[in-house]
Design a protein around this nucleic acid. Structure first.
Length: 374
DNA sequence: AGTAATG
DNA sequence: CATTACTAGTAGGTG
DNA sequence: CACCTA
């Protein structure tokens, strides 16, 4: 029953600079923008759905800045049962591809997997060598989901996991992203949201970026959140530091300060706290450091406590299990000056084109690691 | 979604 | 065999 | 300590 067909396809490229077909994973030094897809695969329907025919093809095409995984037969893959792919030599079985995970938007699991594959060249560099936490919604966003830290039993053996003993003594086998196949598998697991640690596996107690989490209550205009983020940028610039901003995927913003992995979490946390105290001093009417929800009023909560080991932040380019399938999207600082900027305009359907246009606006987060003068 | 436990 | 349970728990601030 | 939040 399990037939894996292997076919050579030119390596597609999301940025336009096409390279030689590379069957390998992007982790191998070469062009990080090359999607390691060399596959045409066949899928077959599950028996339970009756004999509606088999042999529909999925196809990956590339070149000229596109990467498409497309279905040959009735366009949205409503009834498709099972599909087998081989990605970078790793075999994955996809199930229930037609299941609507965002029913209101008619977004299926197939669409989610396609999204993960398309953004993988941009998303993976930010996830690689990092512990991941999945938030899964096998029945879609209208039903209850659950977190998953431990790599689940039955997961393919090629998934990379690293055990970590938390202070309470509990050991978690964290999933670590390796290549696009990791994301494709997560997609099939209905992982609608992916979180990542702030420190990489080589320096688990030394975060390589600080996170300034701006968390507005419902009803605060997004432009006000932008205003606070811009003030924070000004403050950090005054210290000679360069920082980057992304949407949370919901209503908030998260400012990343890339760091050399030389400070422990408490040092970073205190630094973020001090910056936030200064911001709060500048704009006390619209921001708060109050931890208790009931004491925040309509103010934007400045959360520095996410800078701690074992805490996670929604990953760059991760979708959110919210109506509209929004995505945590990086922004250009100039965009924050537009009153009409709407974070819900960044979603699964719009991000791939934006990546083609803008590239990875967070690329410098990976390279511009800074030292903080304390 | 997939496995394990329970009835 | 059918159904149900399970899947995160920690970190750190506050009172 | 228990409790709250993310």
């Amino acid at each position: 029953m399990s037939h894996f067909f292997k076919t050579r396809v030119t390596s597609p490229c999301l940025t336009g600079e096409t390279k030689e077909p590379s069957p390998c994973l992007m982790s191998h030094g070469g062009d990080k923008r090359t999607v390691p897809v060399s596959y045409i695969k066949k899928w077959s329907k599950s028996e339970a759905e009756g004999d509606r025919g088999t042999g529909y093809l999925s196809r990956v095409t590339g070149g000229r800045g596109t990467c498409q995984l497309e279905a040959r037969e009735p366009s949205p893959c409503y009834f498709l049962g099972v599909m087998m792919l081989e990605l970078g030599g790793k075999k994955i079985t996809f199930t229930n591809l037609g299941k609507k995970l965002w029913p209101g938007e008619n977004i299926s699991k197939y669409d989610l997997i396609k999204y993960y594959l398309r953004v993988s060249p941009y998303m993976l560099p930010h996830l690689r060598e990092r512990f991941l936490v999945l938030q899964r919604f096998p029945e879609g966003i209208l039903e209850k989901g659950f977190f998953q830290k431990n790599c689940p039993p039955g997961a393919p053996r090629w998934l990379r996991t690293v055990p970590f003993r938390h202070r309470g003594g509990k050991v978690i086998r964290y999933l670590v992203a390796a290549g696009p196949e990791t994301l494709a598998w997560a997609g099939n697991q209905a992982a609608l949201e992916i979180h990542a640690w702030l420190s990489g596996i080589n320096f688990l107690d030394k975060p390589d970026h600080a996170v300034f989490d701006l968390d507005p209550p419902e009803g605060v205009p997004f432009s006000r959140v932008c205003e606070v983020a811009l003030a924070l940028k000004g403050l950090l610039e005054k210290k000679g530091l360069r920082c980057f901003v992304k949407t949370s995927g919901a209503r908030g913003l998260q400012v990343y300060l890339p760091l050399l992995p030389i400070y422990d979490y408490s040092t970073v946390r205190k630094f973020v706290q001090r910056c936030f105290e200064e911001i709060n001093g500048q704009m006390p009417a619209i921001t708060t450091l109050e931890r208790k929800v009931s004491g925040r009023g309509d103010k934007i909560y400045l959360d520095y406590l996410q800078n701690a080991q074992g805490k996670t932040i929604v990953a760059l380019y991760s979708p959110r299990p919210l109506p509209g399938a929004p995505v945590s999207a990086p922004l250009e600082w100039e965009e924050l000056h537009f009153a009409a900027l709407d974070p819900s305009s960044f979603h699964i359907g719009s991000i791939p084109a934006r990546l083609l246009e803008k590239g990875d606006l967070f690329a410098a987060v990976l390279s511009d690691k800074q030292a903080v003068i304390l």
